[in-house]
Design a protein around this nucleic acid. Structure first.
Length: 348
DNA sequence: AAAGCGGGGTG
DNA sequence: CACCCAGCTTT
């Protein structure tokens, strides 16, 4: 039995029952694929259910305010996915009359839809013979064929894509694509793969040569950077505070946070009153400034560690943009801020 | 070609 | 601690 046939056979026997596998319409498949980009199924599943419930179709999604979409996305990370999702939904409704593009080429024009996602939707929904290459596919192919070309190099991307295309079952591209990904996720796992019960245990080159743990090869990424965040948590007598929306490129674009003062190093409590920027942001008529957490919260992102302190700044009143504490839950915020809000409930 | 973008899980 | 996850966009 050849590679593709063995995969499909394994898949039909071992696949998980997932909500987006019950329907094959592009809206549901598209939504699931965007949510699952760089995201484990267990983590994305509740978000998929939430989005299907909140936005049953592309029209509902397109007409929703972006901030509602971001709020529903809160906690899932990579927030550009939510913004692109909303942009694409509006494009489909306004420019395409609510009808999804009908092939790979058209799908790839959608914001947030790259080669992988366009291939997934086109093969699953339209049976277009295009091969997906995600993290699972890289791993399965690198091991089975013992390929040590770095999967995140230009040569590797080209090589694995070509191989996936050769192997594709053109009569059944949707199931084929899902089978190799599911196989990678369940059987050919990154760590401790289940080689003992693997249908390819007799033909896998990496297994034969003891290279399982060395494949796939990946170029290592840049070092993690440290940043020092000081959040100014204003508190007024009316129990209001201030949030600002993050703009421009960078982390958490479009999400809300307390006014931020970023420093080059950890700002010591006794240094506050020597920091002109701090004093300027705090403003006049400050009654009291207290440091909420002595030891900084270390919020870890893939590429940076945020050493964060929250400063409570009590004032009689806040001019203008004060937000009542009860309304804070309406705003999409990073998990770092959500954790603080949960710990400090503004009832003092 | 490389950098930037989250948060959570695993060993 | 390092590595990974149904990747994409921007520079």
């Amino acid at each position: 039995m050849d590679f593709a046939k063995t995969l499909i056979f394994w898949y039909l026997k071992n696949k998980r029952e997932l909500p987006w596998r019950q329907k094959k319409d592009p809206y549901h498949i598209w939504l699931s694929e965007i949510i699952l980009q760089q995201t484990r199924i267990e983590q994305g599943l509740p978000y998929y259910l939430k989005f299907i419930n909140a936005y049953p179709n592309v029209f509902e999604l397109a007409s929703a305010p972006l901030e509602h979409v971001l709020k529903n996305w809160q906690g899932l990370g990579y927030y550009s996915r939510a913004r692109n999702l909303h942009t694409a939904a509006k494009y489909i409704v306004e420019e395409l009359d609510g009808v999804f593009p009908l092939n790979y080429k058209g799908l790839k024009e959608l914001k947030g839809v790259g080669d992988y996602t366009a291939s997934a939707i086109a093969s699953i929904c339209y049976h277009e013979p295009v091969a997906v290459v995600d993290g699972n596919v890289y791993r399965v192919l690198a091991r089975y064929f013992k390929i040590d070309t770095p999967i995140n190099s230009t040569a590797g991307i080209r090589e694995f894509k070509a191989l996936a295309r050769e192997l594709l079952d053109r009569e059944n591209p949707g199931d084929h694509n899902q089978s190799i990904m599911e196989f990678g996720a369940i059987q050919c796992k990154p760590q401790q793969p289940l080689c003992d019960t693997c249908p390819f245990s007799g033909s896998c080159l990496a297994l034969k040569t003891g290279k399982i743990k060395d494949l796939p090869v990946k170029l290592k990424k840049a070092k993690v950077k440290k940043r020092y965040f000081n959040y100014l948590v204003f508190l007024s007598e009316e129990n209001k505070t201030i949030l600002e929306q993050r703009e421009g490129r960078g982390i958490w674009e479009g999400l809300f946070q307390f006014p931020l003062l970023e420093t080059k190093d950890l700002l010591k409590p006794e240094e506050i009153f020597n920091d002109s920027r701090f004093l300027e942001m705090a403003g006049k008529e400050v009654r009291e400034i207290t440091l909420f957490n002595e030891s900084p919260v270390i919020h870890k992102l893939s590429h940076q560690h945020l050493y964060t302190r929250f400063w409570l700044i009590e004032k009689k009143e806040l001019d203008g943009e004060g937000i009542p504490a009860q309304q804070l839950k309406e705003y999409p915020v990073p998990v770092l801020i959500a954790n603080f809000l949960k710990e400090y409930d503004f009832t003092y």
